[in-house]
């Protein structure tokens, strides 16, 4: 008969044991949260009390979105006509939309051509992996950085913004396009090959017709993203459009109500684009 040693279980009994990775995770969390708390404690508030700051924040938000108003002269309008003001600001929104449209078009065309070579079933795995790897690298760098990189050559402005945004668009759309191409039934390609069709014939007669709806909805999705980026680029890269005016209102005129006015305009366009993109996405059941 074996004897059981109950004396091993001494002291307080734990019902859990930490694994090494859990131990690391918890210590990192503890360090980060104490650093955050410490940060708040030593924050330089310039003598503004918490309650005072909170009420003012709420007040400003109320001003911004409760009573938005554009100053006509900030939009280059020198009379009191509301219609002229809206026309001028809508013109700026159109400029931003154009930036987004142009970079989506340029990026889309290049991505479509390169995407054919990026699809495993249309080239070999080697070419496909090389192209996809390169594109992953391009995607990994944020759009803003690409714009600033191209600003070295083109100078800050619309040209650098469009080139930089197109560049990131190529990386994004190429992945989407080539994956759509790869989803095509291998048998269709085989059938056309068997009848003596060339590579160009197969691409134009089978691959593109089968994936055209997916290509269109991915492109629109990217257009929506590019619009948001174009607003930011107006401010960050001086690319013009409504984003630049927002930057001026915020940083130069300190006009909180005008920021509200511009934000509402951007919001309307963004919601419209979002609705269309969601519908397209649902219709063709795209994986995100």
């Amino acid at each position: 008969m074996s004897t059981v040693d109950y004396n091993r279980w001494t002291g307080k009994i734990a019902i859990r044991r930490l694994t090494t990775s859990q131990a690391w995770l918890y210590s990192v969390l503890v360090v980060l949260s104490s650093a955050t708390v410490y940060g708040f404690l030593v924050l330089d508030t310039k003598g503004v009390g918490l309650i005072d700051a909170a009420t003012r924040t709420i007040e400003y938000f109320g001003l911004m979105f409760g009573s938005p108003r554009g100053v006509p002269s900030h939009f280059g309008v020198f009379n009191d006509s509301t219609a002229a003001l809206f026309l001028a600001s809508f013109n700026l929104v159109l400029q931003t939309l154009s930036l987004a449209f142009l970079s989506t078009l340029l990026g889309g065309v290049i991505a479509l051509v390169l995407g054919l070579f990026g699809a495993k079933n249309l080239t070999g795995p080697r070419t496909s992996n090389a192209i996809k790897g390169l594109m992953a690298l391009i995607r990994a760098v944020p759009t803003v950085l690409w714009v600033l990189i191209f600003a070295i050559g083109a100078g800050l402005g619309a040209v650098a913004a469009v080139i930089g945004m197109s560049f990131h668009t190529i990386g994004y759309l190429l992945k989407a396009y080539s994956e759509s191409f790869e989803e095509i039934d291998e048998g269709v390609i085989e059938a056309l090959r068997a009848s003596g069709a060339s590579w160009l014939h197969i691409v134009s007669q089978a691959v593109l017709p089968s994936s055209i709806t997916q290509i269109l909805s991915w492109t629109f999705l990217r257009f929506e993203i590019n619009f948001a980026v174009a607003v930011a680029m107006g401010a960050a890269a001086g690319a013009g459009g409504i984003g630049y005016n927002m930057f001026i209102s915020a940083g130069y005129f300190f006009d909180i109500r005008e920021i509200g006015f511009i934000t509402y305009q951007i919001l309307v366009i963004a919601i419209l684009l979002e609705v269309v993109a969601t519908r397209l996405k649902k219709r063709y059941r795209l994986a995100s």
């Binding site: 269709v188 085989e190 090959r193 009848s195 003596g196 007669q205 017709p209 089968s210 055209i212």
Partner: peptide, 20 residues
């Protein structure tokens, strides 16, 4: 390609471009 054009082929799963 020229010789393949002289050989027809029919498949189990038809292999048509369904959108056309």
């Amino acid at each position: 390609r020229r010789e393949r054009a002289r050989i027809g082929m029919i498949f189990q799963h038809y292999n048509l471009v369904y959108r056309l």
